[in-house]
Design a protein around this nucleic acid. Structure first.
Length: 259
DNA sequence: ATTGTGGCCTGCCCGC
DNA sequence: TGCGGGCAGGCCACAA
């Protein structure tokens, strides 16, 4: 599902929309428009303007609009970005590869005939005018060791804390499992109980894993991913993986080397 | 303030 | 062959 690597790919794709005159914007399903702004106001803000930048903050894509407005795009777990017919990410776990016109929830048309489309079979994603970026923690890809330590100052399970977008932004369920597996830390560990050495290890693995998965092209390309299933075994030591529920999410981890 | 829980949304897969 | 139930998880509203 779209975690940081997918949204980074979407951001890169969206750079191709910068500087082009927008002559139409349509929210085909009003439920896809989030936040306080009226759908018509949001669309009217775009028409006649241009995007001037494509940024990413965690899993939030922000398209800066000429004149000072910001268009926030969230992808939920099944959302795709399409620019001029090019899909941002080839394969999306848990989503469908079929093409249904009804799944095009938000369509921006340019005067050159091209289109920027947010496609989402389910409506878990959405677009929002001037999203509250301050509510998001520091981006996981730029996180310093001190910021990680601050984000984990809690008695909550370390995995739940890693996925809390207000503490650090960009880590979802699959990447949280992958990072903790690589770092050898049990997801159930209290976040605040990590020793300085463990914090350092986790920080290194977080950065390395994100770089790795961005390069490989998706959050589902982790080494643990193929074994996140019934009867799955640890790719490192062969132990039978444990399945538990942490922070409301299914978690797979190795009881032999994750402590 | 912090933390936990349930609901939203719907394609897909499994068992009957 | 069709059908219904359960599952997937990002995000938000709400409760304690």
């Amino acid at each position: 599902m779209p975690e940081l690597p997918e949204v980074e790919a979407y951001r890169s794709l969206a750079e191709g929309a910068i500087g082009r005159l927008i002559d139409d914007a349509v929210a085909t399903d009003v439920r896809f428009v989030r936040g306080r702004a009226d759908p018509h106001v949001l669309c009217d803000t775009l028409v006649g303007a241009k995007f001037v930048a494509a940024r990413r903050h965690g899993k939030l894509l922000v398209l800066d609009v000429e004149g000072g407005a910001h268009l926030g795009v969230r992808f939920g777990m099944t959302g795709r970005l399409v620019l001029d017919g090019t899909v941002g990410v080839d394969r999306l776990v848990y989503s469908s590869d079929r093409i249904e016109p009804a799944w095009d929830r938000f369509v921006v048309s340019f005067d050159d005939g091209g289109q920027l489309i947010v496609r989402d079979p389910r409506l878990l994603g959405g677009v929002e005018l001037d999203p509250d970026e301050a509510a998001l923690g520091p981006d996981a890809l730029m996180l310093t060791p001190a910021q990680l330590r601050a984000a984990l100052a809690s008695s909550v399970a370390v995995k739940a804390r890693l996925m809390d977008q207000r503490r650090l932004a960009g880590v979802g369920n699959l990447i949280a499992d992958e990072v903790l597996w690589r770092a050898g830390l049990a997801p159930e560990r209290r976040a605040g109980s990590l020793s300085p050495a463990e914090l350092r290890r986790l920080h290194r693995h977080l950065r390395a894993t994100l770089d790795d998965l961005v390069a490989r092209g998706g959050s589902h390309t982790g080494d643990l991913m193929p074994e996140r299933r019934l009867d799955g075994h640890c790719p490192r030591d062969g132990a039978l993986l444990i399945r538990t529920r942490i922070g409301g999410r299914t978690s797979w981890w190795c009881p032999r080397h994750q402590h």
